Computed example of a mutant assay.
Amino acid sequence: MSDFRVTDAAVGVVLDALADEGTTDALGLWVEVAGNDGTSFMYDVYFQELAQVDSEDLRLRFGELSVVIPRDSISRLAGATLEVGADGELAITNPNTPTPEATDLPDLGPEALANDLALRVNAILEEQVNPAIAAHGGYAELVGVVEERAYVLMGGGCQGCGLAAMTLSQGIATAIQDAVPEIIDVVDVTNHAAGNNPYYQPAKK
């Protein structure tokens, strides 16, 4: 993943900090995803001995600086940039976002995404639904199909949106059931309360 970048200014800040540690050869800068707040990733950035690099970790070189991205964080940091923010502190700009948290999921085995119905539903999401809702910054992701029910996650602008239920019932579900009539129900398993959309209002009980 050569598209992870470190700006020259950030390299300078890190090398200065390494010099304060008394060595620049034995230590590298680890950058990893530590979790998320529902809409964006949180990070750990720290020095560690380069001898600790695992064979599946990604090691990059920026001038005199070695940067290591642990294997579990590689895909989630694709295209990201480590830079110096306006406050002079290191900051990460990342085009990737977490997969929305799901709730009320049934027990799904690997066959839930590999069966014929799931493959047909996924094709509809990719070819029809996502191009349509991308204009609003949203997307829909198939979690699986079990007993003719399709379980869908809604992300981006759709997570936490007050119109999510309408998008599901009048858009996503209609498109899926028109193309795959065997599907008897389309279930939204997104945790919309974890979204960052100001228009979301929790359902009244």
Rank of each mutant, 00 (worst) to 15 (best):
S2A: 12
D3N: 13
F4M: 10
F4P: 06
R5H: 07
V6I: 10
D8Q: 12
A9W: 00
A10K: 01
V13H: 06
V13Q: 13
V14L: 05
L15D: 08
D16I: 05
D16P: 06
D16Q: 13
A17N: 11
L18A: 08
D20S: 12
E21N: 11
E21G: 08
E21I: 08
G22M: 13
T24Y: 01
D25V: 14
D25N: 14
A26M: 07
L27R: 03
W30R: 13
G35C: 04
G35I: 02
N36Y: 02
G38F: 01
G38W: 00
S40E: 12
S40N: 11
S40P: 05
D44W: 05
F47P: 14
E49D: 15
E49C: 11
E49M: 12
V53H: 00
E56M: 14
D57E: 07
L58H: 03
R59V: 15
R61N: 13
R61P: 01
F62M: 12
F62H: 12
G63I: 09
S66P: 00
V67A: 09
P70R: 05
R71Q: 13
R71D: 14
S75P: 03
R76G: 07
A78R: 12
A78G: 10
G79A: 11
G79Y: 00
A80Q: 04
G85I: 04
A86M: 09
D87V: 02
E89I: 03
I92V: 14
N96Q: 15
T97F: 03
P98R: 00
T99G: 11
E101C: 06
E101P: 02
A102I: 02
T103V: 15
T103L: 14
D104K: 13
D107A: 14
L108I: 04
L108M: 14
P110T: 08
P110S: 12
P110G: 08
E111W: 03
A112E: 07
D116P: 04
A118F: 00
R120A: 12
V121N: 07
V121A: 10
V121E: 04
V121R: 02
A123G: 08
I124Q: 06
I124W: 01
I124G: 05
I124C: 05
L125C: 09
E126H: 07
Q128P: 04
V129H: 01
P131V: 09
A132W: 03
A135P: 06
H136D: 15
G137F: 01
A140T: 04
L142V: 07
V143H: 03
V143F: 00
V145P: 04
E147D: 15
E148K: 15
R149C: 11
R149H: 10
A150I: 02
L153S: 06
M154H: 03
G156V: 00
G156A: 04
C158G: 04
C161V: 05
G162N: 05
L163R: 13
A164D: 07
A164W: 00
A164H: 02
A165Y: 03
M166Q: 15
M166I: 14
T167Y: 02
T167E: 10
S169V: 09
S169P: 03
A173G: 09
A173R: 06
T174L: 13
T174C: 10
D178H: 09
A179V: 09
P181C: 10
V187I: 15
V187C: 10
T190Q: 07
N191S: 14
H192V: 08
H192W: 02
A194Q: 15
A194R: 14
G195H: 01
N196V: 01
Y199K: 10
Y199I: 11
Y199L: 14
Y200H: 15
Q201V: 15
K205M: 13
